[in-house]
Write a protein that binds this DNA or RNA. Structure first.
Lengths: 234, 234
DNA sequence: TGACGAAATAATGTGCACATTCTGTCTGAA
DNA sequence: TTCAGACAGAATGTGCACATTATTTCGTCA
């Protein structure tokens, strides 16, 4: 006697996963917050098993940390870990801009120019949220232009992890990138084929980001789960 | 009335995960193989839920692919995916050897020399299995010597994925690396501080590996699970 | 009054049973 | 002979109930 037709089963998993992920990205969940399964299940209106699955996935992907028989927590990235991630990014992104400088297609150049224009426009009208998102996507775009899906996926993970405690600390107040014009300079070096210059600019750009985040003290501001997950289910 | 003291609960998860992982790494599971949960639970002597958890983790980490309501399968890497992974490795490992060439400690040099000696010894006595393992660990060692844990973890993932269908196809017959002496040459360039030479050697080394794997036809040889998981539980 | 300890409570971990879905097979008709 | 449809069997997906473990609270004793 099947009472519930239940057509969307795989979408439910993704919804829970995405909700937690979005709440973290929006800075709603402070580092150190304990994510208890019954509370999450009640707030998200799903069963505890579904929450457990999503939490396990997030733990395996590195977004959350799990302590056996204790629970899962929002990790607080140490300065050292953050610097390591930026170090890996330096290696990859320097190679990326080098490659793009030496060899890129016409459509790639067009996409790059369009993105820079969008960033400038967002900065002009003081749209902090959009500018923040665009500044992150700039780095992803460069990976995409290499035409390597594995590279793009990898870099996307690194970028979100590195900007995590960034947005966790103070998403609204902070400026998006150390220098918004940095992206424009890098793009110009790429488009004019100056590989060494592009790589150097990217390295200094990333160093600037590290310093910006290192000086930021990790504020702790615990919030209730009901408030944290308001409007992230859509 | 607790019948089982059960001191190792978290170790059980890791055991199942490691067993599947090891079976794959040993080439016991051909690409396309369906890993059914009841059979795995019977063979590994654990409950189905534990198998499910391990399978989910492996899927999220990219080792296995899952088809909803169908099961989980051993993926068959396409040539394109493999080339992309090697491309990312090229970026990272070129940067790694460059950095090590320019700056490495005395203990690092000692570890590097020791590893090369081990590899040569294994090749001398024709120990294929050990030589294969060591040749992989060489690349991991280089990452470790950079002192960046994130980098090491990332590269370990890439390396296992790239060597996956390598070992899946024919683990015993094949030679470990394109040129076993390549590693020695790279190490020498690093130790003598020749960054450009080390990077170039690493790039050609990786290109050689790609070509070696590209020419390999994906043989399909389905085996019974009981045989696949013989001796991987230790 | 403070500290130590035990019981109560709540959360995590695990196994089981049931529902759903897919696959392979068998039968019957064109 | 072949194709279509239905049925049987098995595997996956899901929710629930219970066991285990940690935390908090309360009581007692020094």
């Amino acid at each position: 006697m099947p009472r519930k037709p239940r057509k969307g089963n795989v979408a439910a998993d993704e919804a829970v996963y995405g909700a937690i992920r979005r709440a973290m990205h929006l800075g709603r969940l402070a580092p150190g917050t304990k994510l208890q399964e019954p509370a999450l299940a009640r707030v998200l209106k799903v069963s505890r098993e579904r929450v457990r699955k999503a939490l396990h996935r997030l733990v395996h992907e590195g977004w959350l940390t799990s302590v056996p028989n204790r629970g899962t927590f929002v990790p607080s990235l140490t300065v050292e870990e953050m610097r390591e991630i930026y170090d890996v990014r330096s290696m990859l992104e320097a190679a990326i801009v080098r490659r793009l400088s030496e060899d890129h297609t016409a459509p790639a150049a067009k996409r790059l120019k369009a993105h820079i224009a969008e960033e400038k426009a967002a900065l002009k009208i003081e749209d902090r949220g959009r500018a923040f998102a665009l500044s992150g996507e700039f780095h992803i775009l460069l990976a995409e232009l290499c035409g390597n899906d594995e590279l793009t996926k990898l870099l996307r993970g690194l970028l979100t992890r590195s900007t995590m405690h960034f947005s966790l600390a103070a998403p609204q107040q902070l400026h998006n990138c150390a220098g918004p014009h940095d992206h424009g300079d890098i793009a110009e070096a790429i488009l004019t084929g100056k590989a060494d210059k592009a790589a150097k600019l990217m390295l200094t750009h990333l160093v600037g980001l590290v310093e910006l985040q290192s000086t930021r003290p990790p504020e702790i501001k615990p919030v209730r789960l009901e408030e944290a997950f308001r409007g992230v289910l859509a």
